[in-house]
Design a protein around this nucleic acid. Structure first.
Lengths: 229, 229
DNA sequence: TAAGTGAAGATTGTCGACAGTAATCAATAA
DNA sequence: TTATTGATTACTGTCGACAATCTTCACTTA
């Protein structure tokens, strides 16, 4: 496993503090949809849920606010952030630039083993497509892009990229993602991996950027459809 | 003044909560060098300094940790983050990509008034250069790039860019920035603004990226010199 | 002298409590 | 019936206190 090893629960508890743990937990709640977009977050409720006082909860919420997953109104509480199409557009604008960089770097630095891992995920995605398992495809899609940014070998890049795409997830939770055409999406993935395997950094960068552009277009189409409903 | 209006103190106190205010204050302490890089931050000390309890301080520190300005060790405290040359390199890698995007967008979107503002700052920088006022030049340099990212008209881009460059400031605080050649730097600035005025987005993007690349090279030269001392 | 040990002090982690503010809802008046 | 007012309730903002942990440093011992 060439990727950064996932930390064990033990390591997590020992190194990270309670607020950090809570932060991860709340993030899962948001990204998992249990806390709906726009919803107010009740501190006391979370506190009793996690068997802590409100202190650690508040600390976690501050961190989540800094990462723009929640917004906070004074004396009113913190709310799960809602992303408008306009803001999603802004994010995509940045993402396109970063994806190009990611494609270039992965083409330059990825090990043969990592390329194989990417291909394996691609194959899984094909199977999910065949079964029309959208949920599975979506999870694999996230994994694929996460692996890419990891293989780019730049921690700061990965951090920026993940922060950005987390915002996009808030939007996707409304069910607008991928615009239905996910078989198309995987064709684009394959072209990218081909360029990576060929160590063609320019082409890989261009293709991954193009993939982001197409994703944005799919997002727009889905949003347009959703608005007509 | 076409830029985003600076919020008044009143607005700040009314809208933002105490932790948010404290966060800004601590950030100033760090970026101003009062809290040295690598130094441990004493919660009680800050609390008495700002006449609050430790709660708000801790919340602010969590937010600063999320923005990577401090790091936190369990049961040991939080420390002002130190940036290695390797990490500065990583940041520059991302910054180059973002700068290209910024150049393109500003060329497309900036108002004539904004272009004039940029030129005015450039003139100020020339005067600072003539007086060999490095500190003033440095401040204006930051302002120039901050205006650029603002004029790009993409809040998320601005956010990502500022987060990134804040990290670079931690490095710069060690006196390694600019590598001495700041007259050269302003020549590059002028070329960028020329492209912006000509509405040549491709050239503006290329030049601003190139400027970031040169900045990185200057950083490396300065670091090399610092290491021989 | 150097290494190890123990206590004392300082600092962080967490909690429960109280004050202040916003939201809710019933009662009243137009 | 609708709008307004006032009281009630719920929640956030902040604080001080205590427990747990780390650091420091004097002291002992080989």
């Amino acid at each position: 496993m060439a990727r950064a090893a996932a930390p064990t629960v033990l390591q997590l508890v020992q190194s990270n503090s309670l607020p950090a743990l809570v932060q991860i937990e709340i993030e899962q709640l948001i990204l998992g949809g249990e806390l709906a977009v726009g919803q107010r977050i009740n501190e006391s409720e979370l506190a009793s849920r996690f068997r802590t006082s409100r202190g650690p909860i508040r600390e976690a919420l501050r961190a989540l606010e800094e990462s723009r997953l929640v917004r906070s109104e004074k004396n009113r509480g913190v709310f799960v952030r809602e992303i408008s199409v306009t803001e999603a557009d802004e994010i995509y604008d940045v993402r396109e630039a970063l994806d190009q960089l990611i494609g270039q770097r992965v083409a330059e630095r990825a090990t043969p083993e990592q390329i194989r891992e990417l291909k394996a995920v691609l194959a899984e995605m094909d199977r999910a497509t065949a079964k029309q398992d959208i949920k599975c495809y979506h999870a694999l899609n996230l994994k694929f892009h996460d692996m890419l940014v990891e293989f780019a070998g730049n921690a700061r890049l990965a951090e920026s990229y993940r922060l950005l795409t987390k915002g996009l997830l808030l939007f996707r939770l409304r069910g607008l993602q991928d615009g239905g055409g996910f078989a198309v999406s995987n064709t684009e993935h394959k072209a990218v991996v081909d360029a990576l395997a060929a160590r063609d950094s320019t082409r890989a960068g261009r293709l991954l950027r193009q993939h982001a552009i197409e994703s944005r277009a799919r997002m727009h189409r889905a949003a347009a459809v959703a608005d007509t409903i």
